[in-house]
Write a protein that binds this DNA or RNA. Structure first.
Length: 305
DNA sequence: TATACGTGGAA
DNA sequence: TTTCCACGTAT
């Protein structure tokens, strides 16, 4: 019963050789590493800001905005003291602007509840606005080297393929945590994410280059449906952007970056729907509800406080 | 559990 | 040119 002596394997298919998986993946990563420099800083705020930016936004687009953001809002207190409109302004080009509102609120919570620093405990991190399972564990692992498994879309895909089956969210998290080599959460999570981003990609995975192929139940065999489809943490298709409410929201937020107010008369034009003022007002109301703007007395839209 | 939420690069 | 693809959280 040799497998009983393997390291922690809670939730894992017994056929997955944990020790070999850990060793081969870490060796591969040591030879190919392309980590993000600020993840090494142990600065909880820097890691939080970058991970919030990395929600739904790819690394290449985050890097320049992250540098600019940190130059302006170097710690939670600076961010919390600024008007939320200033944070929204610095979010330009990243999309999903309500993340900026949530980040400002998270900075405020750090000042109010955690002596101005980003907490290290998972529970406290999860309580911050805009911080979910991914971001909380990314901060815990990368800033504080806690032994937690970070499950993003890449890791979710890898875990499903390794086990050869679709996973529920709690299952994926349990397995991700169990795989972390004790004391090496930083490198391990970085390695998993890099593997998913560069090798175990969604379509046409490069299984011939995969360092952990020998441990994988799926191995990209075309005859077998991809176990990652519909599995926990793996993103799904989305509706079209062109012509969507999201596009109009983006235009309105951009309009408020250029000028402090969009008048009621200009609202439809700025939203990109000159012939549908009713739609523009309805969508503007969603911005107000999200804290991205506020109504002017005359029915115009103003920057958030 | 399904849906809303932005942008830009690649195909 | 258009379409596809990448990317977590809140509700």
């Amino acid at each position: 019963m040799a497998h009983r002596t393997e390291p922690t394997r809670a939730g894992l298919d017994p056929s997955v050789p944990v020790a070999e998986l850990r060793r081969t993946l870490l060796e591969w990563w040591a030879a190919t590493r392309r980590d993000l420099p600020w993840r090494r800083t142990r600065d909880g705020w820097a890691v939080l800001v970058s991970e919030v930016m990395l929600q739904q936004t790819q690394v290449a687009r985050v890097i320049p905005r992250f540098e600019a953001f940190m130059a302006r809002f170097g710690d939670p207190a600076t961010c919390a003291a600024a008007p939320v409109a200033a944070v929204i302004d610095k979010w330009h080009g990243l999309g999903y602007n309500r993340r900026a509102v949530a980040l400002h609120a998270a900075a405020t919570a750090c000042v109010d509840r955690h002596d101005g620093v980003v907490p290290a405990q998972l529970e406290a991190l999860l309580a911050l606005p805009g911080v979910g399972p991914y971001t909380a564990r990314a901060v815990a692992a990368f800033a504080h080297e806690c032994d937690v498994g970070v499950v993003d879309t890449n890791v979710g895909r890898i875990l499903a393929r390794l086990g050869g089956r679709s996973l529920r969210p709690a299952e994926a998290q349990t397995i991700a945590d169990a795989l972390v080599p004790p004391g090496e959460a930083w490198a391990w999570n970085q390695a998993m994410m890099d593997l998913g981003a560069g090798v175990c990609v969604r379509t046409q995975p490069r299984c011939d280059q995969c360092p952990v192929r020998a441990c994988c139940a799926w191995q990209g065999q075309p005859a077998d449906a991809d176990p990652a489809d519909g599995s926990a943490g793996v993103g799904r298709g989305q509706s079209r952007f062109a012509g969507s409410d999201r596009q109009g929201r983006g235009r309105l937020v951009d309009g408020l970056r250029r000028q402090p107010m969009v008048t009621a008369a200009d609202l439809a034009e700025v939203a990109g729907w000159p012939d549908d003022p009713e739609r523009a007002r309805r969508v503007a109301a969603t911005l107000v509800a999200d804290g991205l703007a506020r109504w002017d007395d005359d029915g115009g839209l103003r920057r958030a406080g």
